[in-house]
Design a protein around this nucleic acid. Structure first.
Lengths: 196, 196
DNA sequence: TAAGTAATATACTTTTTAGTATATTTTTGT
DNA sequence: ACAAAAATATACTAAAAAGTATATTACTTA
């Protein structure tokens, strides 16, 4: 069993995650988190060195959760094609993301870009890792004979992720999920065109 | 000729733009802007009501500049295909954007999403307008006989913009422009496949 | 179950940032 | 070139946010 302190820390991270994801690192403040968690400064500063430390750990928490969700999602696809389709479908409801405020990877990527080098590196690692995984799925699909070797895994993996992630931002700004449906369909059709 | 006050105001907006684009609205502060512009509070508050007003006008300034650049870019293409290609090529160097800090539309879209409803609406308008323009170019291309009517303008326009914008964020996070080249090539090839 | 320790709350200080009142300088039109 | 008005600078206050010292409460294990 987790100790009290560990449970409290986890609780703070979970409470802080949507706040940081929505308001951003600069926009979020300690008092927001404390009010939401109904805790006090003494408690929070017992678990985190300060705002910077909290932000970093919140980011790590969000990235871990996201990674787990993503892995679970694509693991449900048995073929390479099914895995990619499952990945794409993961993005179908950009207005109601599992974590309030849209995709944490992109939100953090945009904010950390010129401001938080340590966090930026973490995000870069996550994106690279995601691309590698995506490429490995497609490559295996080619080796399997599932896809034609005309398919360029690196290009398709990047295109698919960039497109759905960009689409999340656009859909949220315009407050409509509609274009996402067309995009996912198009990306599926594109992959389908390489199916043997 | 512009009056002194008008020139100063423009100067403040131009100085503030890269600061807001890089640090975000929440992350940027008045003193940053004043230091960069080598001006003082009395001056700034003579031109703007406060930070909120400054932020809004900086955003409007960035969006206007961006819109002009974009229009100029695509106007250089004579055919529909050339216009789209010019648009795509506009994004080829995501690490060195004309405005420091990446694409202002996406940066602002991400931050304003859950925080600045007025600005969010402005961004939504810009994105919608961009999509309409893109769609109209493609539609004209079909009517011209340049493209097959198998091309779905709404889907391609959304896919292209979402992909290149998403790619800017990913490239900047990973600190490499390489994947962008492959993406642009792929989006061009995709359009090319509809050329009659 | 009581003593010791860990966790949390309270009340404070410090720092940062926004905003304002007033003085001074610079434009501008005659 | 000069007076009026506009623009800008200086020096301040106010508010918001971060961080700290200490008291209190709640675990936990001997």
């Amino acid at each position: 069993m987790l100790t009290k302190a560990e449970r409290t820390k986890q609780f703070i991270l979970e409470t802080a995650a949507p706040i940081f994801n929505q308001k951003g690192i600069s926009g979020a403040n300690i008092d927001d988190v404390l009010a939401a968690a109904k805790l006090t400064k003494g408690c929070l500063y017992g678990h985190f060195e300060g705002k910077e430390d909290l932000a970093l750990q919140v980011v790590e928490h969000m990235l871990n959760t996201n990674g787990e969700k993503m892995l679970l999602t694509i693991s449900k696809g048995k073929t390479a094609k099914a895995k990619v389709f499952a990945f794409l479908d993961f993005y179908k409801d950009p207005l109601n993301t599992y974590l309030k405020g849209g995709c944490p990877i992109f939100n953090i990527a945009v904010e950390s870009d010129d401001n938080f080098p340590v966090i930026k590196e973490k995000i870069a690692g996550v994106i690279r890792q995601g691309q590698e995984l995506f490429v490995s799925v497609l490559t295996l699909g080619i080796k399997n004979g599932e896809f034609s070797d005309k398919l360029d895994p690196v290009v398709y993996a990047f295109k698919a992720v960039a497109a759905v992630e960009g689409a999340v931002v656009m859909c949220r700004a315009m407050n409509t999920a509609k274009p996402m449906a067309g995009l996912i369909k198009s990306l599926k059709a594109e992959l389908e065109s390489y199916v043997i």
